[in-house]
Design a protein around this nucleic acid. Sequence first.
DNA 1: ATGAATTGCGTTATGATATAACATTTTGTA
DNA 2: TACAAAATGTTATATCATAACGCAATTCAT
Lengths: 133, 133
Amino acid sequence: MGARGEQMQADVLSVLQRSSRPLSAYGILAELRPERPKLAPQAIYRALGALCGKGQVHRLETKNTYVPSQTDRDGRSTVLSICDDCGTVSESAAPEVFDDLSVVAEQSGFVAKRHVVEIIGRCGDCTGSEHGA
Amino acid sequence: MGARGEQMQADVLSVLQRSSRPLSAYGILAELRPERPKLAPQAIYRALGALCGKGQVHRLETKNTYVPSQTDRDGRSTVLSICDDCGTVSESAAPEVFDDLSVVAEQSGFVAKRHVVEIIGRCGDCTGSEHGA
DNA sequence: ATGAATTGCGTTATGATATAACATTTTGTA
DNA sequence: TACAAAATGTTATATCATAACGCAATTCAT
């Protein structure tokens, strides 16, 4: 059960970890194609789905890309700060944010399954050195 | 300048306001096609871009769909609670959340351009009446 | 062990979302 | 009017994601 799938997941995770930036599913595919010419998108998406489910990978909803988790937080939500300039992503636990969101949800009887919190902007490095704009 | 574009935006907004659920760009296109057979995706995306820029429409990043703003908050970010069951979306100002996010960003020297906060789950109505799962 | 049921994966095909690039029209200015 | 600038229309294509089906491995009852 699942032995081959675990290999696929390991390969996908490894590609993400070696990348300095978030990758799209097709970007991951392109990295793996040299070794496995017949690899198809479906395999990548299945591996990403499993990895996201386990909290080992985060999907950047605003970019349709994926990054490896930086910290082992056992699947709890994190705030992702995404730099538009250099592409780096940093993860923050920010429990206050999620506490507040619980209150927001409860007020309207909403039962939350998942929280998505992304901050899009420029990281300290890029702001300091005034790249781009 | 922009007179036709404003018409397009008004039509797109009107379609969204008449819909009981979030619509995709292609969903909006389908609504408008009967009146304007030659209408193309690009026109819809341009109108949506302008409307989102003005804060009159929100894009649901987790669903690739769009909803009209429920409140005129002059472009400030809102928390969007999205029901997986019935599709309804509710908007909350939740200033505490965005205050907390400012702190998160500042800690790492990050300069935020945009905040995306979405809660995915089931709304009170759907939870109460136990539809679906 | 053997065969049926189940599960997961590979593979092919297609669907859905979004934007690039260039032509045309409109608008603003003199 | 004539021209420049900007918005819009139009065609084409890029990008992201999943449906559907069949095969192979695993499980489980006998």
